[in-house]
Amino acid sequence: MRIGVDLGGTKIEAIALDRGGAILARLRIPAPRGDYGATLDACVGLITACEAETGRQGSIGIGTPGAISPFTGRMRNANSVWLNDQALDRDLAERLGRPVRIANDADCFTLSEATDGAGRGANSVFGVIIGTGTGGGLVIGGRLLTGPNAIAGEWGHNPLPWPQPDERPGPPCYCGKCGCIETFVSGPGLAADHAAHTGRALSPPEIQAAAARGEPSAIQSLARHAERLARGLAGVINIIDPEVIVLGGGLSNLPHLYDDLPALIRSHLFCDGIATRILPPVHGDSSGVRGAAWLWG
C-alpha cells in the first residue's frame, strides 16, 4: 500500500492506494495554518488513520508547496511559510519511525498523470500548473526528474520568450525578478492583464464567463493569455521535446486552451510540426495527493 499526503495551505489530504492505483482510503482535514508542530501532528494523524482504516501499513510520500533544499536539507519556497527552513522529511520520519519521501506539489501532479493519468504510456511527460502560481514537473521513463538543484520543471521563473515591446520589462515577480512567465500566465497574471487593459478587476472565472457572453475585451484577454502561454510552452518543447504536456491548476479548466495551444506553439518551434500532445489531467485536483503516493514507485 502507498500513502500520499498533499500538504496544502488550507487543507491536508491523505490517500491510500493499492498497487494498481485503486483508492483504499481517503481523508481530508483543514490545515493548521501557521503552526509547524500542529502540521506534523496532522500529517501523522492522517497517516495513522489511513492505516487503521485499511488494516495495512504503507510507504509514505508527501507533496508540499515548496521543496527540500539539497544544500540545507530544509524546506524552501513554500507559500505555507511556516514550513520554510524546517527539516520536514526528517521530522516526519522521526515521528513515524520510517522513511518519508517529499516532493514539490507540481512534481507530484506530474508523476500522478504520468503514472496512470493523461500521460500514461508516454516516455516523457511535462506537467504544468497554471493556477495561483506557475509550476512544473518532468517525468522521464516513469521516473520523476528533480535535478541536482531540485528545480527541474521550474519553467515559470524564466523570462517570457520573445517578449513584445509592451511586455518589457514585465511585471515584478515575488522571486525578485521582472517578466517571469508566471507573472503573465498564472491566474493573478491573467487577472492583472485584464485589469490593465480594461480597468475592470475580474477573476479568471469571471473573465471566462464574460468571454462566453461575447464580451470583446474578455475574449482579447484570453487570447493574449493563450498566446503567452504558448510562447512559454514552446520554450519547454524546444529544450525537452516531451511527448505529452498535461495542464493542471485552475486555468487548466479553460477549454479553449486545448484547441488553440498547438497551433500557437507551433509557430515558435524549431521544427516543421508539433507532435507533443497538450492534454487535460485525468485525476484533476486529486493528482497531487496521488502523485505523493506514487513517489515510492
Rank of each mutant, 00 (worst) to 15 (best):
G250K: 06
V100L: 02
Y258R: 11
L247P: 02
V125C: 11
V5F: 04
D116C: 10
P205D: 05
G189K: 00
N149K: 12
L96F: 04
P205E: 05
E206L: 06
V125H: 06
A31V: 09
P163K: 08
R95C: 06
R277D: 13
P262H: 13
I239G: 06
A152I: 10
E206A: 15
R231Q: 02
Q57K: 12
I62P: 08
A38V: 02
A212L: 13
G187Y: 00
M75D: 12
E182V: 04
G147F: 08
L190A: 00
F71R: 15
F109I: 00
H256G: 10
I237N: 04
G127I: 04
C173K: 03
A22R: 14
R168S: 12
D6F: 03
D105G: 11
P204T: 13
H268Q: 11
L145T: 13
N253E: 12
A234T: 07
P172W: 01
L261G: 12
A150S: 14
P169A: 06
A212H: 10
V81H: 11
A192K: 13
D166I: 05
C108P: 09
P70Y: 07
V5H: 04
P165M: 05
I129Y: 01
R213N: 10
C175W: 03
E206P: 01
N158P: 00
F126I: 08
S69W: 06
I29Y: 02
D241P: 03
G37R: 08
F109W: 01
L279G: 10
P32F: 03
V5Q: 05
A230P: 04
Y258Q: 10
G232N: 06
D41Q: 12
G142M: 14
G142I: 13
E182I: 04
G199M: 10
P30D: 14
G117T: 06
A196W: 07
D193I: 00
I60W: 00
T134F: 15
A211H: 13
L111V: 11
A152P: 01
L254R: 01
R277A: 15
S287V: 10
R26E: 15
G142S: 10
G249L: 08
D116Q: 06
A42L: 04
L40K: 03
R28V: 14
N238E: 12
R277G: 08
I237L: 06
F184A: 02
P280K: 15
R19M: 11
A14K: 06
A31T: 15
T183W: 05
P32K: 05
C173P: 03
D260R: 14
P165W: 00
G133C: 03
G34F: 02
E51R: 02
A292H: 01
A191T: 04
T132F: 13
I129C: 02
W294C: 01
A16D: 07
G21H: 14
F71A: 14
V5W: 04
W162K: 01
E13N: 08
L138N: 02
I12L: 10
D259Y: 04
D272S: 12
I102L: 14
N238A: 07
D166V: 03
A263S: 13
L279Q: 10
L138Q: 04
T183R: 10
